[in-house]
């Protein structure tokens, strides 16, 4: 701008002016400014292009990703369906084969079991028959034995009754003897009791005398002082005067 606002000192020729302008255009400062401007513009263009490129690249990637996902899903679905169909067919055939084998084995086992059961039933019939015969004979034998046991029991009861009568008679005799002994014992006991009573009463009387004596000793103790007893003592001493005097004069 400064360039264009400068006052024209004098009118120059167009060539001079062009030469001046060229010179001016090509001085160092101007070239540096141009370079800076060019650098800025280049960076701006690059940044804008980069943004656009990135935007387009993101959109492209997103689209590609969506398409790829769709494609892969379709492919996987197809493959899964195919594998499922193959597996189903294989498993079905295997199961059918095994079911056939199992049915055959079960039929064989069923037949064998049926045979065994038939044999068992036959055997049981035979055993039942044998047991019936045996039971019949056993019941007859048991009846015989019971009858003989009842006879034996009756005989024993008779013998027991006789023994009981004998024992009863013996007990009666013993009771009679015991009664007699009891009477004798009672008489003897009464006699002993009487003797014991007399002995105890005798001892009691002897002890009673001691008790009365002790009672008198307790009751009369400390009742009389020596002064009160003095006349009696003097009298007794007078009564025994000779013996006392003789002893003291020895």
């Amino acid at each position: 701008m400064g360039l264009f606002q400068q006052k024209q000192p004098a009118k120059k020729s167009t060539d001079d002016q062009i030469a001046d302008n060229e010179q001016h255009f090509f001085d160092e400062y101007f070239r540096e400014e141009l370079r800076n401007h060019g650098r800025w513009y280049f960076e701006k263009v690059i940044a804008e292009n980069g943004k656009l490129f990135k935007k387009e690249l993101d959109a492209t990637i997103e689209r590609v990703d969506g398409e790829l996902k769709t494609y892969l899903t379709e492919q996987v679905n197809v493959m899964v369906e195919q594998i499922g169909a193959d597996l189903k067919g294989h498993v079905t055939s295997k199961i059918e084969q095994q079911v056939t084998e199992h049915s055959k084995a079960m039929q064989e086992a069923q037949d064998a079991a049926l045979n065994e059961m038939n044999k068992s039933v036959e055997s049981l019939r035979e055993q039942h028959k044998t047991l019936t015969d045996s039971l019949t004979s056993s019941v007859a034998e048991q009846e015989q034995r019971t009858k003989s046991s009842i006879d034996e029991y009756n005989a024993r009861m008779e013998a027991m009754k006789e023994a009981q009568d004998t024992a009863l008679a013996s007990i009666n005799e013993s009771t009679q003897a015991l009664k007699q002994q009891q009477q004798e014992l009672t008489e003897r006991l009464e006699k002993n009791v009487t003797e014991q009573q007399n002995s105890l009463v005798g001892a009691f009387e002897g002890n009673m005398a001691q008790i009365v004596e002790q009672y008198l000793l307790e009751a009369l103790g400390d009742q009389y002082d020596v002064k009160a007893q003095l006349p009696a003592i003097m009298k007794q001493m007078e009564d025994n005067k000779q013996a006392i005097v003789d002893d003291m004069k020895l």
Binding site: G221, Y224, I233, Q236, M237, I244, M248
Partner: peptide, 8 residues
């Protein structure tokens, strides 16, 4: 009780 017990 009463009396005297005398020893010469």
């Amino acid at each position: 009780v009463a009396g005297v017990y005398m020893r010469t």
